[in-house]
Structure formats: structure tokens, C-alpha cells
Design a protein around this nucleic acid. Sequence first.
DNA 1: CTGTATGCAAAGGTTTTGCATCGGG
DNA 2: CCCGATGCAAAACCTTTGCATACAG
Lengths: 142, 142
Amino acid sequence: MLTVSTAREALHKAGIRITPQRLMVVDVLVDNRTHPTVDQVYLAVSKHYPTVSLATIYSTLSLLARNGLILALHGGKDGLRSDPETTPHAHAYCEQCGDVYDVALPDEPVWKETHLSGFQPRHTEISLYGLCAHCAQTTPQS
Amino acid sequence: MLTVSTAREALHKAGIRITPQRLMVVDVLVDNRTHPTVDQVYLAVSKHYPTVSLATIYSTLSLLARNGLILALHGGKDGLRSDPETTPHAHAYCEQCGDVYDVALPDEPVWKETHLSGFQPRHTEISLYGLCAHCAQTTPQS
DNA sequence: CTGTATGCAAAGGTTTTGCATCGGG
DNA sequence: CCCGATGCAAAACCTTTGCATACAG
């Protein structure tokens, strides 16, 4: 799980500059299980650092993702979301309310190595689309 | 696997009008294993139906997806792609050349029912990001 | 000091929308 | 015939880019 010190360390080791903006983005994501959109991260950082720009948020998120510190989620329709939990798990997107939930995976690998035919995966994204428990009640059947 | 007649039947059963544009989109996707982007579908349909509009392609693809006739893939960076093969399988996106490959899955379900905590999945998308066999050679390591 | 990161604004690309017209059932 | 589908264009949206300035190391 992401922490400010591990992020500091990892970025330093990769020869990447530690800036207050980057630390602020990390700080917003630490222990954050809400899978925030880029805009939500931007707003949260803005509160403590009002002059930050959206472009910096994008660049920082992609930097953190490239260095394996966070995951980039492409499932929803609100654009990119971020997840500080990088251990394997799936994400459930509610098509009604838009919320995103974590879903645990079995320990066995999901796909067969022999079926990759030479493809070398770097990261995986498993997305479930449907209705969350709450919306399934209020919207019985579509 | 999608065919023109199954599509006709399914749309008719759902009380949805059969239009030449819609049939043309289906026709482009039948037996198509290239995971075409929206634009590629548009161009292919345009060849036989020059007055078709991009908006119609979007609406038709979303219609077919809503009715379970095709899958919508959100993995790549070229926007939405379509897949007429709706049985469970994963997709491998090459970050170098952008090509999309099919990956077979084991027969066992991927996630634990008990971990869905009430979420009702309607469809699933499993995306692998990395380098395809060809690009892995030419671009040894990043 | 030096070169990278930032902020700003503008551009880029994809997808959606509004509305008049067309045409399938 | 009628209501949904289409085509067109504009709008909305998310994300990237270019460039001058600021600042981390």
C-alpha cells in the first residue's frame, strides 16, 4: 500500500524530483479507497495547494503509475481513476451510480501462460460492469 | 459468434427497428477478429453506404452492445473498439504498436462470488497491457 | 547553477447531443 | 401513418501539448 515515504524513496531511487505537488498528490491517494477521478484528485490537492494545475495532476498520476506506485483505472465513464492498492484485485463499476468497488481475486493466475503466445503483460485490469448492491434494489431490473 | 440473422432476430425480439445502417454495421463485425475502432467501422460501412454518419455508428455499436450482440472494449487509447465474440476471453493491448490480441481464459470463474458483496455483474472486461511478441523483440526492454 | 517540473492556455481527439428530416414496420 | 432512426453540425468532455517561468537538487 502506498505511503508518502515509500513514494519518496521510489521516486528518489528512480532519479525523479520530489516536488510539493507530487507529494500532495501522493498524500491525497494514501489510504484512499474511493478510486478518485483525476478531477477529484485535482480538487483535493487544490484545497491545500490552490495554484496546482490539472496538467500537473495528469502528469503526476501517470508518473506514479509508470513507477508502479499506483494503478490507473480506465473502466468508468468519468475518465481515469487512481488506485493506491497495487496488489491484484478487480474493480466493479456500477452503471447506475458510477461508484467503483474492489473485488478480491483467487490466488491462481487468471489466464493461461500458454495462451499469451509471446505477449508480455506489464499490468492487468479486470473490470466488472453491472449494478452495485444498493442500486440493484432501487432499480430491480433494466 | 455474431451473425446477421442472429442479430436480426435479437433486435426484432427486442422491438428494435432493423435499418440498413444497423445491418451494415453488423455485417462489418461478423467474423471480424481485428477489434476495430469506431472509426474503422465507420470507414468500412462508409464504403458501401457513403452517407452514414459517425453518430449512427456510435449509436448502433452501443445498441448492439446493450443487447449483448457484441462487446465494447475500453482498453486501448484509440477509443472504443468492438468485438463480435461475446464468450469470455481477455484482451492483450500492445503498448507499442496498439494491436489487440485475444487471450483464452481458464474455465473457472475469475472472481469469487462471495467477494462481490451483492454487486451484480452484467459483463466483464479483462485487459492485459504490455508488449506483443513482435514488439518485444524489436524493443527488448523499456 | 542546470535542467526538470510547473502553470497556463490552447489544441487534439473522442463521444454525445439537438434538431430537422427520413423511412421502417 | 407514426415514432423511432438518421445525418449533420456543434458542443461537451477528457487528455495532451507548447512554452515561459519557477524551483529542486
